[in-house]
Write a protein that binds this DNA or RNA. Structure first.
Length: 399
DNA sequence: GTCAATTCACATGAAAGAGACCACGGTCTAGTG
DNA sequence: CTAGACCGTGGTCTCTTTCATGTGAATTGACGA
């Protein structure tokens, strides 16, 4: 019986899968298209900066910034891979600093870079300077040029400070066989200002700005990908326009536009609808939001969930302006009921701030004059998402 | 009525501890020839 | 003799606590008009 239903599901999937999608991978974040629309200027600038490496000369460090989904990573990867095709002596090292387990500590970053250069480093146990030496010798053996792309470099600096960048920018002084240059990529324009002046001046010898895409540009990009991704005539008129419009509202994020299109199509496919319609885009939009939040909540450690449960209980009891102190006392209650260890208020305060950062709750630090200074906590998520969060909390016996 | 001082309830920072994980090198032990 | 088990040491990492300092406006109280 079970076997039969499984068979049905799979065979249904196989027979229906091709109605809509021709090549789904095209819509993924990692896909690098041959032609990059509306970034010709940036490509030209970056290519000019990196060109001297083709003749074995050193290259200026360079800093790319612009909001998420404005094509920074795409341009960087595109130009550098083209560079490598032309001259094999150029080595490209791409590191996404946002990825956990890499950017958490200096050690891990160095270990990851060494690993990419072919030197395995144990995940822990070695002194950091030992790993640094491993990395240095790996770079030294490389020869030629090494272009280090540090994507989401602001995440790195937030976590472990800018000392590592200082060391990296000075690497050329310790090594003469290999010429190292760095391409830093950041979402935040103000990031440079937070850096140590010495690092700032070396890192941003050249700067390239990526403005947000506007509606028409997003439409072009989506059209290009949609042609490759979908079978002919599957996309109803207006769908691409809607995706582009929604993403344009949100600081012209091409990544979001692609996500919307992909999820809308997946929803249509699941419904066995032969076409992707505008209502699928609407569904995709709310799904995108809700999935992100739910996924984040699911990944939270038990203590954070307990704090969240306390907040939700206060919201349910219709209490106005919830404060850190209120949350803490409910939290204590929840902990003693479930046998969870009670953390200090200091720590709980940090957990609340983290939940805020993740976008699960909204907080604002306000001063109530004589009555102290505290965080005002609110939940702005919609009813359906909150219900899902409550389900997760109940699974953990916290509600 | 005006204005500086006070006060509250935390926020925020810094430092340090606990306990987990891991690598490495030395020592012990059991199995093999 | 040797491979593998075991142990101690020294390192990192994450979460947490402890201690210290900062914050901003309502309230208070002294002062002068």
């Amino acid at each position: 019986m079970v076997q039969q239903t499984l068979k049905d599901i799979f065979s249904n999937y196989v027979s229906s899968a091709n109605i809509i999608f021709k090549n789904k991978d095209v819509l993924s974040h990692n896909y690098v298209p041959e032609v990059t629309y509306h970034r010709e200027e940036q490509i030209r600038q970056l290519a000019n900066i990196l060109a001297p490496s083709l003749k074995g000369h050193g290259v200026s460090n360079c800093f790319l910034y612009g909001k998420t989904g404005t094509g920074k990573t795409l341009v960087a990867r595109n130009v550098t891979s083209e560079l490598k095709k032309t001259n094999n002596n150029i080595n490209i090292l791409y590191i996404n600093c946002k990825m956990k387990k890499i950017s958490d500590t200096e050690y891990r970053l160095l270990a990851e870079m060494s690993r990419l250069l072919g030197k395995e480093v144990p995940p822990t146990g070695l002194p950091t300077d030992a790993v640094y030496n491993v990395f240095l010798s790996a770079v030294e053996n490389l020869g030629g040029n090494l272009i280090l792309i540090l994507d989401e470099i602001d995440a790195l600096v937030n976590k472990i400070g800018d000392e590592i960048l200082y060391n990296l920018t000075r690497i050329n002084q310790n090594i003469n066989t290999t010429k190292v240059s760095i391409i830093g990529i950041s979402n935040s324009v103000s990031f440079l200002e937070t850096l140590d002046p010495r690092v700032r001046s070396t890192l941003s010898e050249e700067e390239i700005i990526f403005p947000p895409y506007n509606y028409n540009q997003l439409k072009d990009i989506l059209k290009q990908r949609a042609d490759m991704a979908f079978n002919d005539g599957v996309i109803q008129p207006g769908v691409i326009e809607k995706c582009a419009a929604l993403a344009a509202q949100e600081h012209g994020d091409a990544r979001k536009a692609l996500d919307l299109l992909r999820i809308a199509a997946e929803l249509a496919e699941r419904e066995k609808s032969p076409k992707v319609e505008i209502r699928h885009v609407d569904m995709a939009e709310s799904k995108l939001d809700s999935d992100r939040i739910i996924e984040i909540v699911r990944m939270q450690p038990k203590q954070s969930l307990a704090v969240l449960a306390a907040i939700i209980r206060l919201v349910e009891s219709k209490q106005e302006d919830i404060q850190t102190g209120d949350v803490f006392s409910i939290y204590e209650e929840i902990c003693s009921r479930t046998g969870l260890k009670i953390l200090t208020q200091r720590r709980v305060s940090d957990l609340i701030a983290e939940l805020d950062m993740l976008g699960i709750i909204n907080t604002r630090v306000i001063s109530k004059g004589r009555y102290g200074r505290t965080r005002e906590i609110r939940i702005t998520l919609g009813e359906p998402i909150t219900e899902n969060i409550k389900k997760i909390l109940r699974e953990n016996y916290l509600l």
